[in-house]
Structure formats: C-alpha cells, structure tokens
Design a protein around this nucleic acid. Sequence first.
DNA 1: CCATCGTTCTACAACGTTGTAGGCAACGTT
DNA 2: AACGTTGCCTACAACGTTGTAGAACGATGG
Lengths: 335, 335
Amino acid sequence: MRQRLKDVAERAGVSVKTVSNVVNGYVHVRPDTRARVEKAIAELNYRPNLSARHLRKGRTGVIALAVPELDIPYFAELARYVVTAAAAYGWTVLIDQTGGRREQERVVASGITDHLIDGLIFSPLALTAEDLAGLDGTPMVLLGERVEHGPADRVVIDNVTAAREITDHLIQLGHRRIAAIGSQRTDEGASARLRLAGYADALRAAGLDYDETLVAPASAWHRADGAAAMQGLLTSGVRPDAVFCFNDTLALGALRVLHEAGLRVPEDVAVVGFDDIEDGRFSIPTLSTVAPDKARIAQLAVELLANRLDGDRAAPAKELSAPYRLELRESTQTP
Amino acid sequence: MRQRLKDVAERAGVSVKTVSNVVNGYVHVRPDTRARVEKAIAELNYRPNLSARHLRKGRTGVIALAVPELDIPYFAELARYVVTAAAAYGWTVLIDQTGGRREQERVVASGITDHLIDGLIFSPLALTAEDLAGLDGTPMVLLGERVEHGPADRVVIDNVTAAREITDHLIQLGHRRIAAIGSQRTDEGASARLRLAGYADALRAAGLDYDETLVAPASAWHRADGAAAMQGLLTSGVRPDAVFCFNDTLALGALRVLHEAGLRVPEDVAVVGFDDIEDGRFSIPTLSTVAPDKARIAQLAVELLANRLDGDRAAPAKELSAPYRLELRESTQTP
DNA sequence: CCATCGTTCTACAACGTTGTAGGCAACGTT
DNA sequence: AACGTTGCCTACAACGTTGTAGAACGATGG
C-alpha cells in the first residue's frame, strides 16, 4: 500500500505537519526529530502524493508541451530541449500531440489537461487568435508565428529574414531559376507565408522574377509531400536549378525524387531546407539549411513560462526572438 | 478565476453533488435539472479539477511513456502510436526522457511522477531486474528485452529470429563477408545481444564463419555511431560485402560513410537496418530493414496496462509478442 | 388510504497535503 | 521574579472532488 504522511508520522512519533515540514525543508525542526522522520520516510519508502499537494498548493510541477506531431524530427528535437530546459526548474514535461487539427488544438488550449499542469508551451498549426481570446486559464507560451497579436507570450525566429538569407545564398552561387516547395493556400501556414515572403524578397532584391510556376504547394511538410511537390515540378517541365524547401523533411523528400530522376545535387539542382534536423547532417548529399537555435527557443519558452508563473499573470504579452544561422553543406556546394 | 462545482451549483440552484452527478453522467437527474446545470456549466466555462478528482478517486487518466531519447526516430514514432492507442482509453500520455541513464530510469521506475500517473509504459536501456524488484507502486509495462523475468508485463518482438531472417536475406543474395554494426560490451545492450545472436545463427546455418573483425561495436545507436563504426571497418582493412546494422540510424550513418568512401550500395556493399523508421523510406538508397509493427506494440502495451489497472494487480506478469516483417528496399537490391 | 418503492436530490465525510494559529518550553532581558 | 522572544511542535481547516447515507417526493399496488 502507499504510504501517507500520517503513516510516517505515526512511525516517527510526531505530528503529520512535522513530517510535512521535514519533507519541505522547513528550518525549525530539531536535528534529532528530523533524523527520526527521515528514517521513517526511508523505511516506508514514502512518496508525496502530488495530486494532494497540488490541490493544496495550486501547483503541480508539471508543464505541457503541445506539438503537431512527434515524429516530425524538428518537434522531437525541440521536445528534447524543452524537457532539458524544464528540468532546470524541477518541472516534468507532459507532451501532447495535436495532429495540427484545430479542434484538438482548441481542446488543448482550453485546457484538456485541466488543472493538472501549471503551464503550457504550445506550437499551434491551425489555431486562431480568436480561439485563444477569452482563455483565462493556464499560462501559455506560443512557439512560432501562427498566432499573431495573441494574448500570450511568444518565442519566434525571424522567418522572413532567414528565408531571404538562405535564398540569397542560392542566388550568390549563381542560381537563377529557384523553386520553392512548401507554400500553403490555407491561412494555417503562417510559417509558409513568412518563408515565402523572404524568398520573394530575395528574388526581388536580386532583380529576379517571381515565377508562380516555380512555387509548389505542400499541404503537410513530410518527406512524402516534398517528394510529391518535387515530382510535380519536374513533370510540369519547369526546370529549376535550385530548390528552397520550407523545411528539412520536405527537402529530404525532394532529394530523393531528384536522385530518382537522375539529377545530381548540387551540380544540376541545388537544394536547401529549414530546421537543421539531424537527418540533414547525414543525408546524401548533406543538406544546407537554416538552423534555428532550438536549445535557445526551448530555454526562452521555459523562462517566459517561469516568469509568468511566478510573476504578474496580467502583464502584457512578451515576444522574444531566438537566433538562427545558415548551415551550408553539400546540397549547395561540392565538397 | 477558476470555477468550481460550488460556483456552478449556486448558479444552477442545486447542490454541489448534483452538479457532480451531471458532470459524471449519473442517470437519475431530471432532464430539466440537467439542462439547468449544463447551462450553468457552459456559462461559467467550468472544467473539473483533475487533481481533486484524482485525490478522491485514485485515478488521474494520465499514463507515462518513458523512453531513452525522443529524437531517436524509432521512439518518436512509437510515442505517436502510444498516444493514439491511449486516446482510445481516454488517457493522456506524459512522455518522459530517461537518456538511457540508469539513475534516471530508476527514478522514473520508482515513480518520480508520483501518484500523478495511473500507469507507466517503459522502454529501459540500463535498468536491471533488481531495480524493479520491490517496486509495489504504479502498474508498469516494459518494452523490449532489457529486463527479463522482471515483475512486470512486457511487449517484445522476436529479435533473434528477425535478425536471423534479415541476415539470411543477405546470404541468399550471395553475400559472404557480412559485417555487423551495433554490438555492445556492456550488459546494457539486450537488443544488441539478441540481434547479434540472430546474426551468428544465420551465419552458422549457412556454414559461414563468424569473424570477430567483422563485428563493430557502437556504444550508442545514433547516426554518428554508425558512421564511426563503418569508418572503423573500412580503415581496418576488412572488406565486407554487406553490413547488418542493429538499427536504422546506425545504417543511415553507415550509408553516409560508404558514400564518402566511393562505395556503391548495394553493388559494392549491401546494407540492412532494423526498426523501419521513416527516414529509411526516403534515404539514398532506400533502406532494407526489419519492420516491427509499432502500432501493434503500442496497442498491446496500452491493453496490458488497461488490464492491469482494471483487473488483478497481483496477477502473474504477462509477456506478449508483436509481429514484424522484412522491408526489402534498394540498399540490398538494385531497383 | 396507507405502505412500499423508485427517483431525484442533498448533507456529510473523506481523499493527502499544507497554511494558519497557537501552545509550550527554554532562553535572555529587565 | 516577571517578562517577552525564539524555537519547535501540534491541532485544525481548507483545497475541489466524489461515495455513502438518507431525505423528500410522487407513483404504484393492495
């Protein structure tokens, strides 16, 4: 059976509250009493009941991270960093998968994990600012640009500038017919919109035309979608000499199709991605990409949450920006 | 502020318990009362406090999944399936990363998530049966062969047979100098030991010698470790005509090194992996592998946990086996 | 018309924890 | 010797929920 404070108290011959004081490190406990209690705790293998503690204190020590899909490497890597960053605050992280579906995201946001968690780090795909309005509950930190002007703290990276820079890298290398893969019609694609904007900026700055036939949509951003989009570009007859994929998994799918078509990367077609997932460091060829500082994103998100929890919950929403850098590898440069 | 049953009760003009009955779908509530209560719930946006409910009922509706690392694609994919399978039971899944460190695994097993979770699905790397003995707490389902004859339910796949079959596939193709990557000296590598045994079995059955110089250890099973091991094999001068990597990420690392060495796959060296992660379906070349039925593994694990929670907690530990199949792709066969 | 029964609802206690208020020694100060 | 102060400890209440016991009510059967 599970042991309670009461069991420990009886065994140590003290009151329940004294045991509680020992467990919580309260100062005014005589050394010998403390020792007796600690002995009893050890003998009974006592563990506090977090639900009861939470009920009393209003804190669980658990935060949630909600992402669209765990088997998208970017989110898996991010999850790892969040878990690490949260550990510094003694927090456990509960990970939620929304599938990117608005309904599920709404449920998460409005607190399916009701009262079980102290706060939420949330990477929404489909959620709107309205869904978030009127939410009074759990403190929340948003990742990415999906919800602008929302009521919650945010951590972002400068997608437009990053996309411009990586596109510019392709231009510097002499590429002129640069395709883009990953645009999205729906208004769900906030990242897609910003990266497309950066891409267009770079072309304009270099005096290149923005050619719609070179822009391939991708409803989701998996390898298979990248493969399909690349296939579409090739069969439609437009012949890009470079491709900017809006994330790395799209790029890996594109690499695969280029390989099957007998085109060499980077000699015939250069390819860049976005996210810097581990796969891209070992793919053939290795993948040039925009590398957001995921550790920093996670750390900032956790810090924002910590401040919100300890500080003023009504303070105006803050927005922090995390750095990124370009990782230039074989897919744009011969070794 | 957060709303409680009491607030709803006052607004609806009924007792607290009646609101509780409505929330829990108790039958004997007059339709008009129920409607009034539901109206009040909606107006106040009431959400039950799970901690309080748990304290009272002894159930949280949360289970934990503990894996070594989330950014190992196999575990990320598995996590996805577990979350899906658990949803069928109305459970939320809390995901824990142990890093494969024994100390952390011990903490998780002995219930760091104390009383917060109803059960635990656990994929240990370093834990021993002794660590688990004497644990009376949370019901647990173990994944994999790490802990044999432990006190908990298990879901496994037949690693030895699977390894034998994929090795045999290489032998059937005419390969004779078949290397293995991923063996482990420490007793932590239960999967490694079993896969190595299957590999040796296949060689023996075909009348081939087991050559120690062809067996490369890998302390962890990341891409970088596979790359290092493959590099080691190549520089040591042994010249395998095929490589069995004990998981897919090792294989992807090996593919990369073979590519850098100018060796063609599968013409010069055939490569197989284990796990069937998504990367292997898009790598260049695509990767032949053993494909464990991850969805089934997750489903069985969740079912075992459900039975344990609802049924006899003292019943003898059960062990279930999940199927697998061979996925033969380009890395062993020219298209 | 009364006893009985089922339905609908309420009051109370309890889950395990911690904050608050307070008691009792032992101590130092006047 | 009387006083306040400090250290150590205990008793009690409360967090929000649900199980149990039972009250009030109307319907049913004899």
